[in-house]
């Protein structure tokens, strides 16, 4: 396990390094010049050149890249071209919205999807089993912004129980308001996410239900719930965990639509603004942090799979060599 961990960590670092090169270069291949956004209309070529010099975009790419890496090494994500504010605290402030939003939605989605998925699999021949998988099928087709608008119409505009959008300016210093403002967004993401998770849980559970090991466990006298708990859940969770990892990672930035519908100052909206303004430091900062998060999530998902599935440990952690 130790060796595996080391190898997996090395892989993570190499991926991060490659990703940072790719995102740095791709960003600069985009059409448009950040200096345009920084000079007034009708600026002379000299003024534009001066603006390029001020933000360092006139220097050779490798030099810009090493400069950025040097900053990163000291934990500095640079300074926004447009607002002149440091990017690090800005990203951190957005994470204060996006991380609770994503995690809460994720947990809620799992809490909904696992039991529903199992029931849909176990009772697939009954009317309600079919209904559950029908609903999840339908749920996958629902666009997230549409669901958001419906929830706003019902719970904010209609009942007036919750705010229709926004996040308190004081952030988590106003905990009750912060929580209230995240309820509908969390629900929106969780419902859409759980729809697709139910499908995965259901098919993983189906495989387990038809498996020889479950039949053997039952034959050895285990009750269905006990056999399911001891063998079924574990086996079913292996494919589900990898899907969970992907879902969680994509929600991190994919929450941008929900952030827009609910006017939340999250990471996705910072990225969208940064791209529109050619604000390279902001875009790089957001993408770097989210790449890191995605890689970490993948890392944790891999580890979790190895913990629940001894076969993976046996195959990879030295026994075979």
């Amino acid at each position: 396990m130790g060796r595996y961990l080391l190898r997996r960590l090395a892989f993570l670092l190499v991926s991060l390094a490659l990703a940072s090169v790719v995102l740095f270069v791709l960003l600069r291949l985009l059409p448009g010049d950040p200096a345009n956004a920084l000079t007034s209309v009708g600026a002379s070529p000299e003024q534009i050149a001066a603006a390029r010099h001020a933000i360092g975009s006139d220097r050779p790419l490798p030099e810009q890249f090493t400069h950025w890496l040097g900053q990163l090494a000291t934990g500095d994500l640079g300074t926004s071209f447009v607002s002149s504010l440091p990017v690090g605290p800005e990203v951190a402030a957005r994470l204060n919205v996006t991380v609770p939003l994503t995690l809460a939605a994720f947990v809620l989605a799992v809490v909904i999807a696992v039991p529903v998925g199992f029931v849909a699999a176990r009772r697939r021949h009954t009317w309600y089993g079919a209904l559950l998988s029908g609903i999840s099928q339908l749920g996958m087709a629902v666009p997230v912004f549409w669901l958001g608008m419906i929830l706003i119409a019902v719970f904010a505009l209609g009942a007036g129980w919750l705010p229709s959008g926004g996040f308190p300016q004081d952030g988590w210093a106003a905990p009750a308001d912060a929580v209230r403002s995240l309820v509908l967004p969390v629900l929106t993401i969780a419902l859409v996410m759980s729809a697709s998770l139910i499908r995965y849980v259901r098919s993983a559970a189906l495989e387990v239900l038809d498996s020889d090991f479950l039949r053997t466990a039952r034959a050895l006298g285990a009750s269905f719930p006990a056999a399911m708990w001891r063998h079924g859940l574990r086996n079913a969770s292996v494919p589900v965990i990898s899907v969970l990892g992907i879902e969680l990672a994509s929600t991190l930035l994919g929450a941008v639509v929900v952030e827009s519908v609910y006017a939340l100052p999250g990471l996705g909206s910072l990225l969208a603004t940064g791209i529109a303004q050619h604000d390279y430091p902001v875009v790089q900062g957001v993408l770097f942090v989210s790449t890191l998060a995605v890689l970490l999530i993948g890392f944790v998902a891999d580890l979790a799979q190895r913990i629940v599935d001894p076969r993976l440990r046996a195959r990879l952690s030295g026994g075979a060599r």
Binding site: M149, I152, A156, L157, G160, P163, S164, G165, G166, S260, V261, Y262, A263, S269, A272
Partner: peptide, 16 residues
Amino acid sequence: YFKDATALNNSLLTNA
């Protein structure tokens, strides 16, 4: 500040 005009109108409708 809002990016979406609908979200802005909703805030007005809910007195935010």
